[in-house]
């Protein structure tokens, strides 16, 4: 590993060997903390991930890749992407407007509003699916009108999209609010006093300030949107090749005693999460200077 100047500029911390005793911990403490962190992450993250890949590759690479040739697997991958492609942008728009309203203005009941935004995290995925059954199910209260005027929601793509939006609802707003709270309104006030319109202020001042948190939020939201199982399972109807997302298809394969295929598809989901994270790391590295600048607010 050769550390270039660029690398060093990116690192927002002191390299380990460089010790400044007054603002650093003793070497022993540092090593203990690193050991604790890595031990914890190994036990709870690395080993479970590893075991997924071990299962997926148990019968060799051939069997692993054969899993992706199945048309039903491909259909499930497509559906997962469709659901994420609709849910993430909608929650993005929501996240931006909620964060703007909450952090740029003072009003009563703000904590109540934030708590309501948090709520989908605390709703059991089982219930998250059930609520849409209660509305759009054959006995649901919205179904008679909805079924006649708009079309089928439950047990088809719209229901899956709705459930996905629900479970990923808070991510982007929750990522933006703390940061925008910290940044305050001075930059925007300045832009406005110089004659910028509200929209110009938002796109030219606010957006550049928050773009990193926004990206984090989108990536997390996307990962969760693709990985959601419980809620989607209730509203999907499990029709092979039509309404199964990747997580549902994994369950089906597993129940069919196709372990290798099940874990292969699961490993693909894990890889997708890591690809988005790799993109994130790349962007962080590429725009390290700007990142450091926006963080200094």
């Amino acid at each position: 590993m050769n550390h270039t100047v660029k690398d060093a500029a990116f690192l927002p911390f002191e390299p380990l060997k460089q010790t400044n005793s007054v603002i650093n911990e003793p070497r022993l403490v540092r090593w203990l903390l690193i050991a604790a962190a890595l031990g914890f992450l190994s036990l709870f993250l690395l080993l479970p991930l590893l075991s997924v890949f071990v299962e997926a590759l148990r019968k060799g690479a051939g069997a692993y890749f054969a899993a992706f040739g199945d048309p039903e697997t491909l259909a499930s991958i497509k559906l997962t992407f469709i659901a994420a492609a609709i849910a993430v942008p909608l929650n993005l728009v929501f996240g931006l407007s909620a964060a703007w309203a909450i952090t740029k203005f003072e009003f009563r009941g703000k904590q109540l509003l934030i708590t309501c935004i948090d709520l989908p995290f605390s709703v059991s995925p089982v219930v998250a699916g059930l609520i849409f059954v209660l509305i759009f199910g054959a006995q649901g209260w919205a179904q008679p009108w909805f079924g006649d005027h708009i079309g089928k929601v439950l047990f088809s793509t719209p229901g899956i999209v709705l459930a996905t939006i629900f479970v990923t609802f808070p991510f982007i707003a929750r990522e933006l609010i703390p940061l925008m709270q910290e940044q305050g309104t001075e930059d925007e006030q300045a832009a406005l006093s110089l004659g910028a319109t509200g929209w110009q202020t938002f796109t030219k001042v606010t957006l550049p300030n928050i773009k990193w948190a926004l990206l984090y939020g989108v990536l997390l939201c996307n990962a969760r949107a693709m990985g959601e199982f419980g809620a989607v399972s209730v509203v999907s109807g499990h029709i092979r090749g039509l309404t199964n997302t990747m997580p549902l298809h994994i369950e089906i394969l597993y129940n069919e005693y196709q372990f290798v295929s099940a874990f292969a598809v699961a490993s693909l989901l894990a890889l997708l999460a890591m690809v988005t994270l790799a993109v994130k790391s790349f962007l962080e590295w590429r725009y390290a200077d700007q990142l450091a600048a926006t963080r200094r607010h």
Binding site: V133, F136, A138, G140, K152, F155, H238, R240, G241
Partner: peptide
């Protein structure tokens, strides 16, 4: 011919709730 599979009573519930 489409097939949907799941736990037996979960499937029954889905049909009652509108799985066609």
């Amino acid at each position: 011919l489409n097939v949907s599979h799941g736990g037996s009573s979960k499937q029954a519930r889905a049909v009652i709730d509108g799985l066609e």
